[in-house]
Amino acid sequence: MHQTFNAALELNLLHANQEGADHNRAHFDQWGIRCLNLMSSPGAGKTALLERTLAALQQELKIVVIEGDMTTELDADRLRQYGVPVIAINTGRSCHLDSQMVSGGIHTLARDYDPQSVDLVFVENVGNLVCPAEFEVGEHAKVALLSVTEGEDKPLKYPLMFQEADCLLITKMDLAPYLDLDLAQLEANVRQMNPHVTLIPVSAKTGAGLDLWLDWVRSQVQQGAALAMA
């Protein structure tokens, strides 16, 4: 007769990605680099925020951007104007960056630039409100962006990214007066699943709120430096 057996695997489907992410983070730690992963739906303002951020910080910190544009070099070209190395990863049709893609970027970083001198790496993820949250790439902190035009219900509908975020930027605040956005409700919705998130309303257009964001970035870099000393 036919006997069946069971092999208990109990293996996470994201196991390989997680291992790769830990490996990437070990590289960053070894070089004293802080890595921030920027995630949002398409067009929420990741590249615009980075433009402002690079302009403000590039004298003060040695920054590298790993750019996960789906198919083009458009975003990378926008950012290169700030005199900062931008490593573009062609993600093909993938809806998120994974740790293996970012590992390719890290190898470029190690080959073409002096990684020991770098303080901060920004990863601009693929525009998508759902999947990037599930795929760690080796970052030390996750930054989510939600633009005011997307509506205050989005954290309830797409909770994963908001739950995982260490910092949430409400972007395009200059447009808020033209919309019926209820900012208090938006914050209450986010805090349902992430009560301790650092929430900062910003406008890349007017510059409002950017000082708070830059301070948060600086505190992240300091934490990284403190880790490297220990």
């Binding site: 036919h2 006997q3 069946t4 057996f5 069971n6 092999a7 208990a8 695997l9 109990e10 293996l11 996470n12 489907l13 994201l14 599930e134 309830l156 509908k157 909770p159 739950q163 805090r191 349902q192 699943m193 992430n194 009560p195």
Partner: peptide, 30 residues
């Protein structure tokens, strides 16, 4: 999609005990 807080006290969802699994549990074979 609607509410994540505790229905009794309104506290935030901080401790997830189930629902985050993505795993291969076992292979059945002969």
């Amino acid at each position: 999609g609607l509410q994540y807080t505790c229905p009794t006290c309104g506290g935030a969802m901080e401790d997830i005990r189930s629902g985050r699994e993505l795993k291969i549990e076992r292979i059945e074979y002969s």
